[in-house]
Write a protein that binds this DNA or RNA. Structure first.
Ligand SMILES: [Mn+2]
Ligand SMILES: [Mn+2]
Ligand SMILES: [Zn+2]
Ligand SMILES: [Zn+2]
Lengths: 144, 144
DNA sequence: TTTTAAATTGAAATTCGTTTTCACTCAAAC
DNA sequence: GTTTGAGTGAAAACGAATTTCAATTTAAAA
């Protein structure tokens, strides 16, 4: 939170970019959004309080967040690019319910370790990875 | 190969669809394509020998392949939907070189097992999953 | 403070892969 | 053969992502 704001500020300075009202509004909204918002979702949320902020600005600013490291792009297969705050959190992967869209997070050190081993065996150097488990969540399985 | 052709033929009959020259051409080309072709790549390859086959037909036919189970849609983050022959192969995941685009395949029973455990812990029923490791392959790492 | 150069903005236009439409063609059942 | 519904290719439509551009704003320089 506080940390991410600082990080973004430093990034702007380092790159010779400018602090603007819009960027502050968008960063606040992004940090307040708990989920994995898409550009459009965040834009719509912001628009309520700040009707003058444009979609393009939200789009560009989210790119900046990703570039400076406080956010990561995600793609869960629903056709929208989503952004996730990386904050001071640890890495995690996702369980996605294809019924209700719920997204659960998990981390599993053993899986991560095995991934490294697989990569090593193939002479690969891993820069990133994506692991997503699709299925039905407890609640949706119950309903059936 | 032979098996997949049969499977597709049966699928067409079952669904009341028709056998056409185009579908045979496209299936042959798809089975001959060793990689993970995108719709466009396959279309371009086919066009050399069969300039009259349209993009829309390739697109629709690949959807049919996926529907009947002889192919699966893939999405490696390059913005193109790719198709992979599922033939009589087993499930596998992918290592993707972000430098040269090379795609290596691997399977790891231990990882799969751990995935199931994670899902179970969260009350999830897994229908499918995607695991992709992005990085640089041996050759590209060498070049630097 | 005023000036200035460069970055930023919002709206609209553009891009690009995907998907649909439509008039015409063809497969296959009768 | 005739009939009929599925299939085809070209072009249009679509939707999200990205770029363009004239006007505005930031912040460094004067
Ligand atoms: Mn997450
Ligand atoms: Mn593969
Ligand atoms: Zn659910
Ligand atoms: Zn490589």
């Amino acid at each position: 939170m506080r940390q991410s704001k600082q990080q973004f500020r430093e990034y702007l300075v380092r790159k010779g970019l400018k602090t603007t009202k819009q960027r502050e509004i968008i960063l606040d909204a992004f940090l307040r959004a708990s989920t994995h918002p898409s550009t459009e979702e965040l834009f719509l949320k912001i628009r309520r309080k700040h009707p003058t902020v444009g979609y393009a600005t939200v789009y560009r600013t989210l790119k900046l967040f990703a570039d400076c490291g406080i956010a990561e792009e995600r793609n869960f297969g629903d056709g929208q690019t989503r952004y996730e705050w990386t904050g001071d959190e640890r890495h995690h992967d996702h369980l996605i319910c294809t019924r209700c869209g719920a997204i659960l997070e998990f981390e599993d050190a053993d899986i991560e370790k095995l991934q490294q081993q697989v990569a090593f065996r193939h002479g690969f150097t891993i820069a990133s990875h994506r692991l997503e488990l699709y299925g039905t969540c407890r609640r949706c399985t119950g309903k059936s």
